[in-house]
Design a protein around this nucleic acid. Structure first.
Length: 819
RNA sequence: GCCGAAGUGGCGGAACUGGUAGACGCGCUGGACUCAAAAUCCAGUGGGGCUGGGCCCCGUGCGGGUUCGACUCCCGCCUUCGGCACCA
């Protein structure tokens, strides 16, 4: 018999699909978002073209592919595009290390990854391919930047920023993990620099509140985003500075503890400090402390285990609730960027204030106690109704939630405070001092300030430079003839912005461009975006839980507000696939534990790899690659291959419809596979179900009475495995005398053949299985019980006693209970 | 410290709504085919015990509980992984 040769089969069908444009999805003549034609948008996260496909990609795209095939065969038009997140540091670093232009390195990598993706046989509309580094794409990234700029959502300011000394660029907050650069792991440094920001904080509430529009996102991703945004409700209270005509506001969520405030702390970067200490005896000590803090690394400073440091300013403020004098300190445990950069310190009810007070011998005054009056160890941070105020004037005795509300209202009435909301989220720092990114389309003019490049002059092309090495400023700055330009507003000599954009800007809108990838008048035509989007099913790794997903949601909301889109959430359903480990660790080149998809495809074919990557376990779980596992799925395809060829050799089926247990098994398999894929979003168990069906067919295939049933079951197995292994499925389908499986309707189970003729009845005594027997379907409950009771072994276990209770689960079991 | 997820055979995992724990695959064992091997096909495979061939006991991280019945629900722990962490 002819051997299963995946390489030849897979190439044959890949060429067929390409020739026929089988997976191209043109836009309708006139896109009407109200058009009821069933359509859907399946999208995997944009890959960074590192050169080779890795197993994470294989899992990601094969998942999307199964969804795509099933949806297509259920009558949907499926938008399923592909592209590349092509700007970014790895290509630039390679250029520095090995020479060559980042663009050439990137484009070589894209060519390689594209070829590997095509060899996997994914049903992608290659006609919509985009790459973020192409001028035709980044022109619109710049255009969108200008939209945000003109809407007041992109701005430039001097601010404390996180600087990566290794990559020589600033980083967004989201790109700093435990004080280290998320990309390279270097400890970040604190600097104060003039940088570009997106005002994502203006959307903090909507990023939280519009989560209700999401159909299905993993709860942990929503939780991570909620924590990252970190909204907390409280109030702002002003403390007057003694001897100066000024007040300092603080943000607090615990106004009920105001009576327990015993000191006051400013962040070292607080702008009022120089004025506070000018000419005082503490001036030198305070300024020295501020300098020392500035020299500290972010990691050192952020370590909560570190002993607290600080210095007294010599100044006092007045507590607005009782006029008490509170000493003002400067300490680095207060950060400038949160709240107002100043706090009232209540050591009895805050761990950090408590540690500080203990260290410096400051007063600790309890103003909250358990509602039952029992004694507690300080700090006591309880803030539910099980706590109450004490020693707080007329508020004493109030339950804490009431005290928070009452004291807040009282301050607001007196004009000494107001309700306020604090967010952990900071504005998105988007400028980077690196070459290989999208230029920021701004010109700096001495007279006019920052001026947008006119829309019709976009794109601002990346200039050619010889040296990509970062030196604390963008390599673009060295392209003098590019930098020098005329002010678009007044015509005077001016200089171009030399920073480039964070690559997360590029990927914050790419899913829109796919809908209308060749549009040269707009990033996307609104009616076309509204026709296809939002994305119905988004698939990608958990590493983007905050970064990309938060930024993309922000962009979509902004563009919706600007009238460019008719929806404000980009991804209705999100699925996070797990990571693939090998030899106990995440696959990585540096650890040398990479299994290259390439070499697997060469040995076993794309179909076996596609099947194995999903058979390994639940798609959302992390799991371990096993070399013998891929052999198992390869063997299964060989088994299916031999079966189908045998069936084909027997000849075409007789006309009359088949029946019998095997046919019923096939219908049950259809129902199981369909339910797993469509309702449960579970991809490993359908494969097991088809394997079971094939095992059953093997046991029946030599029985002349079952020729028709064998053929039906074999065709069913092929049809059901097609989304996973489309090439071999197509080949076998053809050899069985059929055609174009990829366009065949997804099989439907026949309800009349779903029920079984008989089932295995489990008989329990006191909940323990004592007997199983095959019984015909359709017996009544009393009949089943009677049957069970007469079994010899059951009678032995009953020991002549009468059951005190009888439980019957129809179609499954009988449980006889004796006391 | 706070928040979240997960612990099932030698291994990856299945068991969907509280109803046969271990489907399917890997590995291993035996058999068929073969001069032989590979490939393939068939059968067996959680642990322990008794044994006239079948039966009994134990078993889903640990300890309790609810229930006729618990991998599944409740309470309390342990371990692993992930996120956040001076955010006032």
């Amino acid at each position: 018999m002819e051997r299963y040769d995946p390489d030849a089969i897979e190439r044959k069908w890949q060429e067929t699909w390409a020739r026929e444009g089988a997976f191209l999805v043109p836009n309708p003549e006139r896109a009407d978002p109200a058009d009821p034609a069933p359509r859907t948008y399946v999208l995997e996260m944009l890959p960074y073209p590192s050169g080779d496909l890795h197993m994470g990609h294989v899992l990601n795209y094969t998942l999307g592919d199964v969804v795509t095939h099933v949806r297509r065969r259920r009558g949907f038009t499926v938008l399923r595009p592909m592209g590349y997140d092509a700007f970014g540091l790895p290509a630039e670093n390679a250029a520095i290390r090995e020479g060559g232009h980042p663009r050439l390195i990137t484009e070589r990598n894209i060519a390689s990854i594209r070829a590997q993706a095509k060899r996997m046989g994914w049903a992608i509309d290659w006609g919509r391919e985009i790459s973020t580094h192409e001028p035709e794409y980044y022109r619109w990234t710049q255009w969108l930047f200008l939209e945000l700029y003109e809407a007041g959502l992109a701005y430039r300011r001097e601010a404390p920023v996180k600087w990566c000394p290794n990559d020589q660029t600033v980083l967004a907050n989201e790109q700093v993990v435990e004080g280290r650069c998320e990309r390279c792991g270097a400890e970040v440094e604190a600097k104060s620099l003039e940088q570009w920001f997106f005002r994502i904080t203006a959307y903090a509430d909507r990023l939280l509140d519009e989560m209700v529009q999401l159909e299905s996102w993993p709860e942990r991703v929503l939780t991570m985003q909620r924590n990252w945004i970190g909204r907390s409700h409280g109030c702002e209270v002003v403390f007057e500075v003694e001897g100066l005509e000024t007040g300092i506001p603080v943000f607090t969520t615990r106004p009920d503890t105001l009576f327990g405030a015993t000191f006051f702390v400013l962040a070292p970067e607080h702008p009022l400090i120089p004025e506070l200490v000018r000419g005082t005896s503490q001036e030198a000590a305070v300024l020295d402390y501020v300098r020392r803090t500035a020299a500290e690394s972010a990691v050192e400073r952020a370590d909560p285990a570190k002993e607290k440091t600080g210095v007294f300013t010599g100044r006092h403020v007045a507590n607005p609730v009782n006029g008490e004098r509170l000493p003002v300190w400067v300490a680095d445990y207060v950060v400038l960027e949160y709240g107002t950069g100043a706090i009232m310190a209540v050591p009895a009810h805050d761990e950090r204030d408590f540690a500080f007070a203990t260290r410096f011998g400051l007063e600790i005054r309890q103003v909250v106690e358990p509602a039952d009056g029992s004694a507690v160890e300080l700090p006591y941070v309880e803030k539910t109704g099980s706590a109450r105020s004490v020693g707080s004037g007329r508020f004493s005795g109030l339950a804490t939630p009431d005290a928070i509300r009452e004291i807040g209202a009282w301050l607001e009435d007196d004009g000494r405070g107001k309700a306020a909301v604090g967010y952990r989220l900071r504005d998105w720092l988007l400028s980077r001092q690196r070459y290989w990114g999208c230029p920021i389309p701004i010109v700096h003019c001495a007279a006019c300030g920052p001026v947008p490049v006119p829309r019709d002059e976009l794109p601002v092309l990346l200039p050619e430079v010889d040296d990509y090495k970062p030196r604390g400023r963008s390599p673009l700055a060295a392209a003098e003839s590019w930098v020098a330009t005329a002010c678009p507003r007044c015509g005077a000599p001016a200089r171009r912005e030399t920073d480039t954009m964070d690559t997360f800007v590029d990927s914050s809108w790419y899913f829109l461009r796919y809908a209308d990838p060749r549009n040269d008048r707009a990033p996307v035509a609104r009616e076309i975006a509204d026709y296809w989007l939002p994305v119905r099913q988004y698939i990608g790794g958990i590493e983007h839980a905050i970064l990309h997903l938060l930024y993309a949601r922000f962009f979509t909301k902004v563009l919706c507000d600007l009238g460019l889109l008719g929806f404000s959430e980009p991804f209705l359903r999100l699925f996070n696939q797990g990571m693939i480990y090998y030899l106990g660790a995440k696959m990585s080149k540096s650890k040398g534990n990479v299994v290259a998809p390439d070499s697997i495809v060469e040995r076993f074919g794309a179909d076996a790899l596609r099947l194995y990557i999903l058979f390994m376990g639940p798609a959302e779980d992390d799991k371990e690659w096993q070399d013998t596992g891929i052999e198992g799925t390869y063997r299964f395809l060989g088994r299916l291959w031999r079966l189908a060829l045998e069936v084909a050799a027997v000849g075409p089926p007789a006309a009359e419809p088949p029946d019998g247990p095997l046919v019923r098994r096939a219908h049950a398999t259809i129902a199981k596979v369909t339910d797993d894929l469509e309702r449960r979003f579970q991809f490993n168990t359908p494969i097991a179900a088809v394997m079971e069906l094939v095992n059953d067919v093997y046991l029946a295939k030599d029985d002349p009475a079952q020729v028709r049933a064998v053929r039906f079951a074999t065709e069913t197995a092929i049809s059901l495995i097609q989304p996973y292994a489309p090439h071999v499925a197509e080949e076998l389908w053809e050899r069985l005398g059929n055609e174009r499986l990829w366009e065949q309707p997804w099989p439907e189970p026949d309800p009349g053949l779903l029920g079984r003729d008989s089932f295995e009845l489990v008989v329990q005594v006191n909940g323990k299985v004592r007997e199983r027997l095959e019984v015909e379907a359709g017996l009544s409950d009393p009949e089943l019980v009677e049957l069970a009771r007469t079994l010899p072994r059951i009678r032995a276990h009953l020991e002549g006693k009468e059951p005190s209770r009888v439980i019957v689960v129809p179609g499954k079991l009988v449980n006889l209970v004796v006391s």
